[in-house]
Amino acid sequence: MGDVIAVALIGLVGGAASGLLGVGGGTLFVPAMVLILGKEQHLAQGVSLVVIIPTAISATLTNLRGGYVDVETAKWVTPLAIAFALAGGYVAGLLDGDTLSRIFGVVVLYVGTRTLFTTWRTIRRERAAERASA
């Protein structure tokens, strides 16, 4: 019973993160399956990829109705993204994946931190302007 509730919660939280953030949700699904459900890493990745497909379709149907999908951009980016993801996956097998991931971690951390500060500053400036004009 505990496992059923855990699975339901992992799906709900991962799905919500996917719909909100525009990502697959594997970042959440994979560690949750390994740490909470005790699944093996590769199996967790496989299950995660399967779950991502209907999850992303579910959110996309709502996004299409809302008119938020930039279809023209998706048409140009998607085929290349798939081809080069396969190429990247192949190259990853030839290199030290751990070091690569850590280097990329620094880049993601930098982009995230920079975005956080610039956005936070803009929000504060706008609120100050609103207060001044009120």
Binding site: V7, A8, L9, G15, S18, G19, V50, P54, T62
Partner: peptide, 19 residues
């Protein structure tokens, strides 16, 4: 497991998209 997770993740995706 994938089917069980999908049941709630599809619902979660709707919540996430609406938010």
């Amino acid at each position: 497991l994938a089917a069980a997770l999908t049941v709630s993740s599809v619902v979660g995706a709707q919540i996430g998209a609406h938010v």
